[in-house]
Structures are given as C-alpha cells and as structure tokens.
Amino acid sequence: MNINLTLIGQSITFFFFVWFCLKFVWPPIMGALVDRKKLIADGLAAGEKGKHDLDLAEKRVVTKLKEAKGKAAEIINHAEKRAGEIVDEAKDHAKVEAERIVAGAQSDIEQEVNRAREELRKSVADLAIVGASKILEKEVDAKAHAKMVDNLVAQL
C-alpha cells in the first residue's frame, strides 16, 4: 500500500507501451482492416458494374434481335412482293405472248383461209368455167357468158 518509485516506473512503462502500440501495433492492423474494407467495397462495386454491364448488353442484344427480326421480315416481305411482281410480270408477259401467238396464228389461219378460199374460188371458178365450157362448148360462146360466170364467181 506504500506509494513509492513504482509509481514513476509504472508511468514510464505505460508511456513506453503506448508508444510501442502507436508505432508498431495499431497502424498495421488498422491498415489491414482499412485495406480489406476497400477491397470488399471495390469487389462489390465491380460486381455491381458487371451486373450493370450485363444488363446493358442484354438490352442491346434484345434490341439488336428485334432489329434483325424486323429487317428479316422486311426482306422477306420485299422478296415476296418482288416474287409476286415477277410472277405477275411473267403472267402478263405470257398472256401478251400468248395473245400475240394466238393473234399471229389467227391471222395466219385467216390468211390461210383466205388463200385457200381464194384458191378454192379460183379453182371453183376454173372448175365452173371448165364445167361450164364443157357444157357450153356446145351451146354457148365463152365470151358471151363470161360476165355471168364472173358474177357467179364473185358470189362464192
């Protein structure tokens, strides 16, 4: 219970311990704690950023997909339209051609018919004339009855 030099000794010891703690113990431990806090915060921030980036990328992918789909649909539409057009064109073309061919053929036929008719008429006329001349050889002069025969031929 006596107060003596121990008092001063304890004070000095105490100051020494505090100094040691201040110099060699507190800073490294606190440093490690602060560093770890920072590390964790950084990691969390990076994770957050990654998530955000992922979200953005997903959004971009969705829009890109939509765009691509739209484009594809457009292309298909266009192609279909174009195909329709081509088909229509071809149809028209074919029709025109067919009409042309038909018309050509008809005119050919008509020509042919006309020619045949002409020939027929000629030959009928000739025949008639021959027949008639044969008949008339005896009775009628060819010249006298030519007008009547021509009329007949024209009527054919």
Partner: peptide, 18 residues
C-alpha cells in the same frame, strides 16, 4: 504488457488483407 504487445505485434506483422 509484453505478452499483450507481443501477441498484437505478431498479429500486426503477419496482418494480411485477404
């Protein structure tokens, strides 16, 4: 005091973040 400081100093010297 030496036990206390020795223990803490040991931990402080080997203090790692991870």
């Amino acid at each position: 005091g030496i036990i206390f400081l020795g223990l803490f100093r040991m931990a402080a010297r080997k203090a790692t973040v991870d």
